[in-house]
Simulated assay, not measured.
Amino acid sequence: MHHTARRLTGGLLALGMTVGVSACGDDPATDPEPAAEGSWSFTDDLGRTVTLDEAPDRIAGLNDLTASLWNYGIEPVATFGQTSADDDVAFEGRDLDDVAIVGSTYGEIDLEALAAADPDVIVTTIYPDDSSGEIPADKAGYGFNDLAQQEQVAQIAPIIHIAYRGSAADVIERVVELADALGVDTEGGEVAAARADFEAASAELTEAAASGVTVLPVFATPADGWWMAKASDDPQLALYQDLGVTFVEPGGDGYFWHSVGWEEVPGHPSDVLLYSLRFSMTPEEIAAQPTAALLPAVQAGQLRPWKYIGPDYVSQAAYMAELAGYLSEAEDVTP
């Protein structure tokens, strides 16, 4: 698989990654003792149950999930991901002094540093391989380079996988369930307020999208042209689509993305161009490409940031309100 594709914007599938087994209690044959009364357990989206003597309070894992759990008050002890938490918009405004950043490139995790952080559990997402939403039995969680690496990580602490498929609305609820299991009050307090903000932002986005302006999310690379996201395959975009946003269908028979060279870019016009904030070219760099300069959105100056935001009420509400503003300001500029 192309190296660039491994590093695509937050939701980028690590296409072709292999799978892994993790967590305590994965196999009754190797964990025959029933859980003692009062012990903690959580069954993840692979159907694997992690069982501990007590509720975990030292959480490590993929940036995308640790940032979301932090929005519910659970500060991680360690994070890893495609980029450093220092550079990740999901951690904007956070004090990371007490958080071990143990990976800043996809699949590269400092196992010694992760072990030193002494996590009780490690959380990550996992993607299907196609639009069916099914996850192969031999697939590794997102963030892990391969099965062998995931197994090494699982020696440090059990791994909880949250499936990233369907609509982000469902993934958000699953993360709320995890937060609840970790001791967060998810029915009242800050979470209830965040849920209300999310519902208000959803309505705001629906109203803004009613104008019908078209939107194309892209990950642009100087050498390879650009990768256009398929909204129905990306849970975050699928949520926005369900709320009424009109995404351009990029074509192609691949899952999640359709990539084209720069010479084909003019054939994919939109009113608004969303450019990925993870590794993608800047608006200025995109506009400097002769073929991209022909696009209506570029000519109208309607390039806006596409933020890969984790599956939680707080961050999604903030970006949906931002996106609603972009759509409200945008003009219909496509023929």
Rank of each mutant, 00 (worst) to 15 (best):
A288R: 06
W227V: 05
L303T: 01
G244K: 08
L239T: 13
G252A: 09
S276T: 06
F219H: 12
E199M: 07
L239S: 05
G261Y: 03
T206Q: 05
L273N: 07
E249H: 08
A292Y: 05
P283S: 15
L216S: 04
Y255R: 08
G267E: 15
P266N: 09
V265C: 00
A194N: 12
G261M: 00
S276D: 15
P269W: 03
A238E: 15
P235F: 08
F247P: 15
F279A: 13
W257R: 07
D253F: 06
S280L: 11
S276I: 10
T246W: 07
Q302I: 07
S259Q: 15
D242F: 00
I286G: 02
P235L: 12
P217C: 03
D233Q: 07
S280P: 10
P235I: 13
F279H: 11
T282R: 03
P290A: 03
H268A: 06
F256C: 01
L277R: 11
T246P: 08
V191W: 03
L303D: 12
W262T: 13
R304H: 15
G261K: 01
W257V: 04
E199W: 01
D271V: 11
F219K: 00
A238C: 11
A208K: 06
A203D: 07
A208W: 03
K230Y: 04
E264S: 13
G301P: 15
E263S: 11
F219N: 09
P283K: 00
S280A: 09
F279S: 12
V215W: 13
